[in-house]
């Protein structure tokens, strides 16, 4: 296809992506270098019957005018990146100096909002991704063994947790685990502890969110693996059988290698999606015990006064995180691509 024709065909799509994905990243970068204006203070002299005194007050009109004139705020350089709400270099150095033992260091580190969110995000990604793959594979193998007539309905039901809006899915579970909801109540009876609440402790909240994440994403892995299983060559399986391979060995040496590219695909998608975990925290109202990078951006933007600079700095740090996450994939694809051309 000539360059010119290609250009006209791709133009709408490319323009949309450049305007609303690439430019916002630039906008985030610029905003992150700025910070809200400080309030304009003026000194007024109040003269009463007992003499005059100087008083400093906020000039609301001037503040509003300044904010109106320069909505971006004042230039702050990289200041926002290193303040307490983000990388907090000074605080981390302080904690490092005064903490005795690595445990205390980490527990004090978790009081800093950015690190708290980062640790949760990484933990969520690291735990949910492999669990989703294992559970998805197990369900796929199980469904594959079902009589054909039951497979359709099973797939239908299995798709539901994935297809449902993440916020809605988490709300549904949130109501069930409420201390007065069915799961919450059952757990109280099981553990014989009428005070048990999944919302109270950070650990339980984390586990709840992980379980939700696995429940939500397992169907995706399941469907991909199930479709892959349909195309595993029967002859190879039979040949392995003739050679005396047990059922487990057939899965280990024929099915799993055959599925490897699918596992890579699911891992890639899951890494991307789990790293931006956000809706479940809103749905489970878990922000007191667990926040993610996406969530702190949201709460910065949502506050009474939107803190654009702060949100933008977190956003850029998140984008750096995504880039680190994607680098292995990109290097691999680059190598494959070069090999194909060579």
């Amino acid at each position: 296809m000539p360059h010119k024709t290609f250009f006209w065909f791709i133009l709408p799509s490319l323009a949309a992506m450049l305007l609303f994905i690439a430019l916002p990243i630039v906008s985030v970068a610029i905003q992150s270098l700025h910070i809200e204006h400080e309030q304009v203070l003026i000194t007024v002299e109040n003269c009463g019957p007992f003499g005059c005194e100087q008083e400093t007050v906020v000039d609301t009109a001037a503040t509003a005018e300044l904010r109106q004139a320069q909505p971006l705020g004042r230039f702050n350089g990289l200041g926002t990146y290193f303040d307490r709400g983000h990388l907090a270099t000074a605080e981390v150095a302080e904690i490092w100096r005064t903490a005795d033992g690595i445990r205390e260091f980490f527990s004090r580190l978790m009081n800093l909002p950015f690190y708290k969110a980062l640790v949760f995000t990484l933990a969520y990604t690291a735990i949910v991704t492999p669990s989703v793959i294992l559970l998805g594979m197990a369900i796929a193998l199980g469904v594959n063994a079902l009589p054909r007539m039951f497979r359709g309905p099973t797939i239908f039901v299995s798709l539901l947790p994935m297809i449902v809006t993440p916020l809605i899915g988490s709300l549904i579970l949130f109501w069930m685990i409420d201390a007065e909801g069915i799961i919450g109540k059952t757990l109280q009876v099981l553990f014989d502890d009428p005070e048990l609440s999944l919302k109270a402790s950070p650990t339980l909240t984390w586990i709840t969110l992980f379980v939700y994440g696995i429940w939500h994403s397992a169907p995706f892995a399941f469907v991909v693996f199930y479709a892959g299983l349909q195309t595993v060559p029967g002859e190879t399986l039979e040949a392995a059988m003739v050679d005396g391979a047990s059922r487990w060995e057939r899965i280990r040496y024929v099915v799993i290698p055959y599925m490897a590219p699918l596992v890579v695909f699911v891992t890639l998608i899951q890494l991307m999606d789990n790293f931006r975990v956000f809706e479940p925290i809103v749905g489970f109202s878990a922000e007191a015990n667990a926040t993610s990078l996406s969530y702190i951006i949201y709460s910065d933007l949502r506050g009474d006064v939107a803190r654009f600079g702060s949100a933008a700095a977190t956003s850029l740090l998140t984008i750096v995180g995504v880039a680190i996450l994607l680098t292995p994939v990109l290097i691999r694809t680059w190598r494959d691509f070069n090999r194909k051309r060579a």
Binding site: M17, F20, I21, A22, L23, P24, I25, V26, S27, V28, Q31, P71, L72, M272, F275, R276, F278, L293, S294, I297, Y298, D300, L301, A306, F308, A311, A312, T314, S315, L316, T318, I319, V322, A323, L325, L326, V329, L330, T333
Partner: peptide, 21 residues
């Protein structure tokens, strides 16, 4: 490839880019 990278951008980071403009 660029589309793949764009696919990985958390939506809320993009939203934080839109909001002020």
């Amino acid at each position: 490839m660029i589309a793949l990278i764009f696919r990985a951008m958390p939506h809320i980071t993009l939203v934080s880019g839109y909001l002020l403009p």
